[in-house]
């Protein structure tokens, strides 16, 4: 029973990967509810009010109500973004050295140097412009 409770507690508060990104399950449930409550009821209410007002054609009234419903969804989305922070740990890489990066891709500097020398003038000029230099050949 204790194990089940512990599992249930951690399950209820755990993170999950949904559609390619990390969410907290409880936050997702609340955000979904907010989105559903933020849009369709606003649409239904606006449609009822605009149609019963009678000054706008029913089809146009439905269109305006749809616009207001969309705004309701977006407002719910903004609220969710304020309340539920992104579950992403951002790590910025420092500036890298081109030579180290080439080696990490499993290519020798000699191979890359030869490929650069054999490449077009346009490409060689671009490499110079982005500040890449592979140093002299080691003959």
């Amino acid at each position: 029973m204790d194990q089940e409770k512990k599992t249930k507690d951690s399950y209820g508060a755990s993170l999950a990967e949904v559609y390619g990104d990390i969410v907290r399950i409880r936050d997702l449930a609340i955000a979904t509810l907010l989105g559903i409550l933020g849009g369709p009821p606003v649409f239904a209410l606006a449609k009822h009010l605009l149609v019963s007002w009678g000054a706008i054609e029913p089809e146009k009234a439905k269109g305006y109500a749809l616009f207001l419903g969309m705004l309701g969804c977006l407002a719910a989305g903004v609220a969710s973004a304020r309340w539920f922070k992104a579950k992403r740990d951002l790590v910025t890489e420092g500036r890298v050295h081109f030579e180290e990066a080439i080696l990490s891709l499993g290519v020798s500097l000699e191979e890359e140097r030869a490929a650069v020398e054999a490449s077009s003038e346009d490409n060689q000029r671009e490499l110079r412009e982005v500040g890449v230099s592979l140093g002299p050949r080691q003959d």
């Binding site: 969410v23 955000a31 903004v78 973004a81």
Partner: peptide, 9 residues
């Protein structure tokens, strides 16, 4: 922009 906000919208 959290993923929850996006999916909720």
């Amino acid at each position: 922009v959290s993923h929850e906000a996006l999916l909720g919208t």
